Computed example of a mutant assay.
Amino acid sequence: MQEPSKRLPISSSSIGVTFLGTASAMPSSTRNHSALALRLGSDVWIFDCGEATQHQIQKSSVKMGKIEKVFITHTHGDHIFGLLPLLAGCLNGAGGTAEGVDDPRTQVNLKEPPLEIYGPLGTRAYLRNGLKFTHTLFGRPFVVHELRFPNDPETQDYTELPPHPAESPAGRNIPQIDGVWPEIYKDDVLSVSAAPILHSVPCVGYVIIEAPVPGKIDPRKYIPDIKRTKTPMSVMRTLQEGGSVELSDGTVLQGPPRRNGRKVVILGDTYDPSPIVPLALEADLLIHEATNAHLPGVDLATKDVDSFETVQERAISRGHSTPQMAGAFAKRIGAKRLILNHFSSRYPGDDDVNPFAKKIMDAIANLAAAEYGDTVLCARDLMSVELALPPQ
């Protein structure tokens, strides 16, 4: 595991998700390919990076310059084709200069903090080949960490190409431990763990956990003693953090106990995410795909020969889930909130302005809610949601 970095605590209202693309396989006029941005205070982490993600970011409130990490769930094109352009946008990438003209990007300072990329085997090879044969240069470094499955080679990268001039040599090949990848990243405020989830190709789900946060403080319990002993009011900062303060008369004040931070579970494509259950329990937010749904009487393209069972069988055969499967999994892990994502292009994404689209997406949400037992939200492109701290 890398050395912990310093990160400012995240305020109670500044963890959020912006959905940059919510389509499955083929984009549509109302849904782009898969990508979302996790907003963590002033920093941004991208999860999956389908085609035109960079363009979607430009349409959103997400700032390119704030992106510090990218997490890829699997290497299907609709989840990774936008990674090269995104890196070019973030790292001052271009095709170089004419012969005989110096370009400082040919000599990148690899000691600078790199933009970090996490993904399964093949992520590093995809980037090296794409950068090599497009002659792309970067002005800042990047590093690729690969999550290796048990049958993956320990050291090989699926390519004979050498590292790109901007690729940091600090990239790790991270082995599984007891079937998961615990704490592939950790600092004082956040940690990320991962687990395999079942799809048609090797696929990963990610769990982001915020470290315990200060409890709610009642100043009335402390101020009388602080004033009585003429102690500087600045000690309230220590108490707010859950620490203790000994006053001049020997009285010890103890701040409120810390409470759990937030947990976000972001799944890639899957027909069965069971391996991630131990990491995902009691998630504050679960983002789960719901590619296919049976919507008789709602979706005009519904086939007479189809049923809930046949649609589910077809979804599973292609490595995907239905809304009911997503709702059942959310209930299984005790998720406090469920957002559906990754919809077939037949389901329109303009349900905020199109009554017919709203009818379809409401029906999809209701199918999941019937299994989950609570309200379900269907994501659409450029939608943002905020995740507040759990109650005291």
Rank of each mutant, 00 (worst) to 15 (best):
I316K: 04
E289G: 12
P323S: 08
T302C: 10
K331G: 13
T291M: 06
D284A: 09
G319T: 11
R259G: 11
G242F: 01
T291S: 14
R258N: 13
G268F: 13
P273R: 10
F329Y: 03
T270E: 07
I276C: 11
G327A: 03
K263P: 01
T251P: 03
D284W: 02
D249C: 05
P275F: 04
H294V: 00
L247F: 10
E289T: 13
H294W: 02
V305T: 08
G297K: 02
N260H: 08
T310P: 09
R314G: 04
T270V: 06
L253A: 10
I316S: 07
G297H: 12
A330W: 08
V277F: 15
M325D: 00
R318T: 15
A328K: 03
L247P: 12
I316G: 01
Q324C: 02
V245W: 00
E289F: 05
R318C: 12
K263S: 00
L267A: 11
Q240V: 15
V265M: 08
S244K: 15
T251C: 04
V252A: 01
N260Q: 10
I266E: 11
V277Y: 15
L295G: 01
D272S: 08
S248D: 02
N260T: 13
T251W: 06
T322V: 11
N260S: 12
P296G: 10
T291H: 05
N292G: 08
S307M: 04
A283T: 09
V305K: 01
K331Q: 14
Q254S: 13
D304C: 07
G255I: 00
Y271D: 14
S248W: 03
T251Q: 04
V264S: 14
D306Q: 12
F308Y: 12
G261V: 06
T270K: 00
V265F: 10
I333R: 02
D284M: 02
F329C: 00
S274N: 10
P275M: 00
L286P: 00
L300G: 01
S244V: 10
D299V: 02
V298S: 14
R314D: 09
Y271L: 06
P275N: 02
V265I: 10
G250E: 11
A301E: 15
K263W: 02
L281V: 07
V264L: 13
F308T: 11
A315T: 05
T251L: 06
I266S: 14
M325C: 08
L279E: 01
S244Y: 12
T322I: 05
R262P: 05
E289W: 01
V245P: 06
Y271N: 12
S274T: 06
F308N: 09
I276E: 14
R262M: 03
M325I: 11
